[in-house]
Write a protein that binds this DNA or RNA. Structure first.
Lengths: 150, 150
DNA sequence: TTATTTGCAAAGTCTTTGCAAGCAG
DNA sequence: CTGCTTGCAAAGACTTTGCAAATAA
């Protein structure tokens, strides 16, 4: 019943004549599995791989991230900090996707899942006649720690 | 009682020893006043200015956009299409900010203002102990026209 | 075998910066 | 005058692409 993504999921999804399972792709996914909750950029992943002793080309990291998010294994995020960030995709058909709270003081990224967003989507669809398929929702503010500091 | 932004607002906000009112800054703001509802990138603004016969450096456009959004005259948007986009800031102390619906088929940007988002923010603040100061909310989907085309 | 993938370096896109000349106040 | 702005070109940050060599199936 576990819904955790594993290397097997990758193998599963890459079945077919057009994709291949390569060590590079596996190891990139592994980085995300080993760093749950992190929001990693291509550069981050590349650096972590270096640390682990894998010398993979940065371009390959970019290509793997693109592929993994096309396969819905990773979720692509744009926090407006100048680079794309990825994390394991935790959304399933019936589960609510989570969203981000970014502390503008310390940079910490917290997460939340909330049904209110679904209500909001339903409401928008009704009022605007727009069929929503995806969203990018990020809140900025001060985390509890930084509120105290001030 | 009008809450429309004018060149006077710029003059107003640039009062003080650290900022100057320049023709470049005025004309950049004018572009937004003359193109209500558009979400313009630096390149867009630069192009429009060219068309109007003003030969302003692109770097100056970037600097003006930065300044105008620092002054809350413009609102900065990140639609994830590779460049920052700006529009006149319609948010006031008591008015709700508007948000975006982007059609992934035709690229049209629609807007909505909804109180549900405020409820969502309140809820998040209560549950997560995060003091929200800003947000970036964008929905992607199909506009009514493109739904029919399919 | 053979089409996909990799690694590298080069190119591309958007944005920022350094600096001398220009200009608003 | 004097310090803020401009314009230009160069640099920067992130990402994509072309291509020959390597490799999974």
């Amino acid at each position: 019943m576990s819904n955790k993504i594993t290397i097997d999921d990758l193998t599963q999804k890459l079945k077919g004549p057009h994709h291949k399972i390569t060590p590079q792709r596996k190891i990139v996914l592994e980085v995300f599995i080993e760093n749950p909750g992190e929001h990693l950029s291509a550069e981050d992943v590349h650096y972590i791989l270096r640390d682990k002793g894998y010398d993979i080309g940065l371009a390959t990291v970019y290509r793997s991230l693109e592929l993994l998010s096309d396969l819905s294994i990773l979720q692509k995020n744009d926090f407006g900090d100048g680079c794309r960030r990825y994390e394991l995709n935790t959304a399933t058909a019936d589960a609510h996707q989570h969203h981000h709270l970014i502390c503008v003081s310390c940079g910490k990224v917290a997460e939340f899942a909330d049904d209110l967003l679904d209500e909001l989507e339903d409401d928008i669809m009704k009022k605007s006649n727009f069929k929503i398929t995806d969203h990018q929702v990020t809140f900025y503010g001060y985390c509890s720690k930084c509120q105290k500091k001030k």
